[in-house]
């Protein structure tokens, strides 16, 4: 089974969701092909654990299917809603890691890493980054991940997190500073030269 290309990108996600709620299974396939890659990527970047990221992606999509009958067009965008759900599910799992649960499975390395050595180093760095995120307060971790891992703008993050843009700026600034301090202790281990 594979994800077929989306034959009609002009149909909004919200319209497909309503169609699914009315029993259209093709709409579910189209939504999955559009949304699942991004949902899985967001979860993987935050957790860097393939099994956990897939579980989060499945859980987020399950919640989307369940909310479909009550979805009111014009009130929210599916993409924004999913960013929020995935961010919350991931910070739930990061919180559990603080109890000492180790990462037991490494996610797929980035496609463009050329060698096994580089892949291993990238994996170690991404795993360390995820462990660093786990040490941040949850709202800071969410804001930093949405800003720096997903590349979203502050107004977009404000909408996702349902806070003001000023609060986003504060959370990302404090979160990034704290994360930099956390990661500084692992500089040599991760292959970064001291300046």
């Amino acid at each position: 089974m594979s994800i077929a290309p989306d034959p009609d990108v002009t149909i909004p996600d919200e319209a497909l969701l309503v169609a699914f709620a009315n029993g259209d299974q093709l709409a579910a396939r189209l939504l999955a092909s559009r949304l699942l890659p991004r949902v899985l990527a967001q979860a993987t970047r935050m957790l860097f654990d393939r099994t956990e990221a897939e579980d989060v992606a499945q859980d987020a999509m399950m919640r989307l299917w369940k909310v479909a009958p009550d979805w009111r067009q014009g009130e929210a965008q599916v993409g924004t809603w999913l960013y929020r759900v995935v961010a919350n599910l991931c910070t739930d799992r990061l919180r559990k890691r603080r109890g000492g649960v180790s990462l037991d499975q490494v996610a797929e390395p980035a496609d463009d890493t050329p060698s096994v050595g580089a892949q291993m180093q990238t994996a170690a760095r991404m795993r360390a980054l995820s462990e660093g995120l786990a040490q941040l307060p949850e709202r800071q971790a969410q804001a930093v991940a949405l800003r720096h891992l997903e590349g979203l703008s502050n107004p977009e993050i404000a909408e996702i997190m349902d806070i003001s843009v000023r609060s986003v700026e504060s959370l990302t600034a404090r979160g990034k500073r704290a994360l930099a301090d956390i990661m500084a202790g692992r500089k040599a281990e991760l292959g970064y030269e001291d300046d």
């Binding site: 890659p37 993987t44 496609d111 760095r125 891992l149 990034k176 500089k187 970064y192």
Partner: peptide
Amino acid sequence: NEDMLDDLFAQARRVKPPV
């Protein structure tokens, strides 16, 4: 330290796991 972090972020953004 922030330079290192920016590099880590950039690598993380390139992670695109296949479904």
